[in-house]
Design a protein around this nucleic acid. Structure first.
Lengths: 251, 251
DNA sequence: TTTCATTGTGTAAATTATACACAACTAATT
DNA sequence: AATTAGTTGTGTATAATTTACACAATGAAA
């Protein structure tokens, strides 16, 4: 399974504990929305399994800062919407850890880790996924066809989806996942995908407009094979205000 | 401020890192309800400030297990409703740490700690608060008059209250805080205290009964200076079922 | 016996959520 | 150029839920 460890990695493996807090990691569930599908950014370790992008907490760095640093490293983006959602602390959550890391026997990396899950909402088109030096691949996966992930990462992802679902009415989820201009059907697909249920088209539009956080533009979106829908954008000011009070209702 | 460290403490201070994960702690916000007030169990360090009861994570122990162990140590109770709610990971969250621990200069305890917040719901009357060997006092405090706590513990407590408020409709909060038999006005006070708002008496009763999770007993509660109210209890079976689907509505 | 604070109870009005149908538009097809 | 297929835009009636609100009965204390 494992090859020899390159020079760059060696320092990390042998001396990482001087830089990072031991026993503690951060894993990110990075959501994007594209072609009416909710997607998650996954990476694949060199010669290894798929997993959530993650990293470690520097000794003088806040947890939130770690997460946004990791996110920046993986997506190139700054100012990303990022939310801590759960800590995974089972004593045996990293089963088969030796198998995946046979060359790291005495490294701090082989210690038990408790990991803090963050979810991020990013605009799909702005991300250029780039694998890091630990990984071969970095790409988007539809949430309906996630591969088997390392350790408890499938569980972490499920929990993130769960929290995302419950947050739909009091976090700026639409705002962060969609491009600046979007159509009502696109927004509806986003809601339907996250909630995993169908919503009546007219009632959806009625409720979203009643929240008074959207602005309909003069433009329409052309190019589709059908009637051209209007474009909308969020009214950031009103949106932020509404979120403070919690968006009412919920489908 | 500090006295000499007793023998028992010395081993913990000098060798704790052999038993516990470094950099990681658990703090518990233990809620109880008594005399129509929502209360929190606080402890006071020997010669030190008030704080949330907390502890550390053993190397082969899950996070949840740590929390319930800590809770058991502090309250004597088992099978407590316990819920992780947030991780506090600011790099400088433990300000004035040296001041409070002047005798521990080189101990693992002086390292930076990230702490996982758990909230617990206990039946007030079943708890006999007992300070541990680190603390002088252990007692209940009304949430409206919490003293200044060490580090960021006031912030942790506020966050717990926040989460408790938001969880009222999909967690068994009433069930765990009240004694087996209780009156409708008592239940209403509990809701009003947690939500920090008044609720119409008739509408409250109507909704709670419509959830079909309460059983009215033949008994009434006597001894009060007024008309004797009926006693109720939760129908555990129906209650659990309802919670799975999320209690509807919400005041 | 009276007083006082509290409990138990129901209905009407307002708000919110749900169900549902047809004409207009656009690109693709013929 | 006309037709087709699939999608968009729009409003109303009904059901469900939430809110507002008043008075008689009770039990202890005065």
């Amino acid at each position: 399974m494992s090859k020899e460890i390159p020079e760059l990695d060696r320092d990390f493996v042998e001396n990482g504990q001087k830089t990072y807090l031991r026993h503690l990691s951060v894993d990110c569930v990075i959501f994007g929305f594209h072609e009416n599908e909710l997607k998650v950014l996954l990476i694949r370790w060199k010669d290894g399994p798929w997993c959530l992008p993650g990293g470690f907490v520097k000794k003088e760095e806040s947890l939130d800062k770690s997460a946004s640093r990791i996110l920046h490293e993986r997506t190139g983006l700054d100012d990303i919407f990022l939310q801590q959602f759960h800590v995974f602390g089972d004593a045996n959550r990293e089963k088969d850890k030796e198998e995946f890391n046979s060359k790291l026997k005495d490294s701090w990396i082989m210690d038990r880790f408790v990991t803090v899950g963050y979810y991020a909402l990013v605009e799909y088109s702005k991300v250029k996924p780039k694998p890091d030096w630990l990984s071969d691949e970095c790409s988007w996966w539809d949430i309906h066809s996630i591969p088997s992930l390392v350790y408890d990462h499938n569980e972490i992802l499920e929990k993130a989806l769960d929290v995302l679902r419950q947050s739909l009415n009091d976090h700026p989820i639409g705002y962060n996942l969609l491009p600046e201009k979007f159509t009502m059907p696109e927004l509806q697909r986003l809601y339907e995908t996250i909630l995993d249920k169908e919503i009546d088209r007219r009632n959806f539009q009625k409720k979203l407009l009643s929240l008074d956080i959207l602005v309909r533009l003069e433009e329409r979106k052309t190019g589709g094979a059908h009637k051209a829908p209007y474009l909308y954008r969020f009214d950031k000011r009103k949106y932020d205000r509404a979120l403070k009070e919690g968006l009412t209702g919920g489908f």
